[in-house]
């Protein structure tokens, strides 16, 4: 998956069109438990990846979440 495709999907998961790859997760109000599940589902369904909770908690930005997909 390209960065661009990933960002489109994350914007949809977050319901936030303003985020960029470098936006800090701590600054995204919509980065909540629902979004975490949405990200996990997207990672699994589109890439077959299963990032674990500790890995996700260790991410600071949208780009870090992309990095977990090994893309």
């Amino acid at each position: 998956m390209t960065e661009q495709d990933f960002l489109v999907k994350m914007k949809e998961i977050l319901d936030n069109e303003d985020v960029t790859m470098d936006t800090a997760l701590a600054d995204i109000e919509e980065w909540d438990s629902v979004s975490v599940v949405g990200y996990v589902a997207m990672a699994n369904a589109t890439c077959g990846k299963r990032p674990i909770a500790e890995q996700i908690r260790g991410c600071a930005s949208i780009r870090d979440l992309y990095g977990l997909l090994g893309a």
């Binding site: 909540d32 438990s33 975490v36 599940v37 996990v40 589902a41 699994n44 369904a45 299963r50 909770a53 996700i56």
Partner: peptide, 26 residues
């Protein structure tokens, strides 16, 4: 109290949404 402010005790239902999602998708 979890990271998102949800409260539960050990007498209540606990669900790890991410793991259940992964399970279903597998």
């Amino acid at each position: 109290t979890d990271d998102y402010g949800n409260i539960r005790t050990n007498r209540d239902l606990f669900m790890n949404g991410s793991e259940i999602m992964n399970f279903a998708l597998e």
